[in-house]
């Protein structure tokens, strides 16, 4: 293999409000082994066109910012190597099923609205139990495994762009929010199933998942949203049949001794770097 090859990055350019419709722009990018799609985009910005817009941050598959359609398949630009997906031409477009902000930047607000609707946080009957620093909760490794996989979600939106149900319209909350809901429903510390149920079983809820499995196939973190949604559906059915076991929330491990109540840890004030 040659050290450097030129791969044409065919990028969708579009600025809503200014452009009538999206157009494709070609950029020749010198690619070497190990180079990621994100590296290629940075090269375009530095050498060919500084106006190209996309979103990125961590560069290592942690933040979920650089989700985009890479040769028609949703994925992260930072953990996709160019040579794994293209030799001559690489097509890049914004994540499907979302409005476009500009070029490769998708507007993910619909996803986060659905996420919020499903109450993605621990819900407890005993409010004192979740006060910061109030107590610890016991959790066995088996209990942890019931939701750990689903907690790896980085909210990149790849599953939402891959979902065939979402391709049709806005009538489905989507794999990411539903996975987040199940992540908490499956958590032994949580008691929020009834609170999440209206959205989970609602008109845009889990019943619109038909197990096409695309979300699981494209997830860059191995979260397996298809499994989470199926398990959420099972919970709903068992709940309907009154067969769902009501989990008593675990008691706090220990009350801190009197006088040693720890104050919540406060984050240090943010200071901009001098350089």
């Amino acid at each position: 293999m040659k050290d450097r090859e030129t791969v044409t990055f065919r990028v969708q350019r579009y600025e809503p409000g200014r452009d009538a419709k999206p157009v494709w722009a070609d950029f020749p990018v010198a690619v070497q082994a190990g180079m990621t799609v994100l590296d290629g985009l940075l090269q375009i910005r530095q050498q060919l066109d500084a106006t190209l817009a996309w979103r990125f941050s961590c560069r290592m598959g942690l933040c979920g910012s650089c989700g985009m359609m890479i040769n028609g398949k949703p994925g992260l630009a930072c953990n996709t190597q160019v040579h794994d997906v293209a030799r001559k031409t690489l097509r890049l477009a914004p994540l499907a099923n979302f409005p476009v902000v500009r070029d490769l930047v998708a507007d993910l607000r619909t996803m986060f609205a659905a996420h919020a609707e499903l109450k993605p946080f621990l819900v407890r009957d005993d409010k004192a139990g979740i006060e910061p620093g109030a107590a610890e909760f016991l959790q066995s490794p088996e209990e942890l495994l019931k939701f750990l996989q689903f907690s790896y979600c980085i909210k990149c939106g790849a599953c939402m762009a891959a979902c065939p149900t979402m391709a049709l319209g806005a009538g489905f909350l989507g794999p990411m929010p539903l996975t987040a809901a199940h992540r908490y429903n499956a958590d032994s510390r949580d008691q929020g199933f009834a609170l999440r149920k209206p959205a989970l079983a609602g008109p845009r809820g889990a019943h619109h998942c038909h197990y096409a499995g695309e979300c699981t196939r494209v997830c860059p973190k191995g979260v397996d949203p298809a499994r989470a949604v199926q398990l959420a559906r099972r919970d709903l059915l068992l709940d309907l049949l009154r067969l769902k076991r009501r989990r008593p929330a675990p008691a706090p491990v220990a009350e801190p001794p009197a006088g040693e109540h720890k104050a919540p840890i406060e984050a240090p004030p943010f200071t901009a770097r001098a350089d």
């Binding site: 028609g72 499907a96 099923n97 979302f98 409005p99 391709a167 049709l168 695309e214 196939r217």
Partner: peptide
């Protein structure tokens, strides 16, 4: 943002042969 929702539509079900 005055953008269309960029949905793949019915053809998106086919996914150009790229789906599982």
């Amino acid at each position: 943002i005055p953008s269309p929702p960029n949905r793949l539509g019915l053809l998106g079900w086919l996914g150009g042969g790229r789906r599982g």
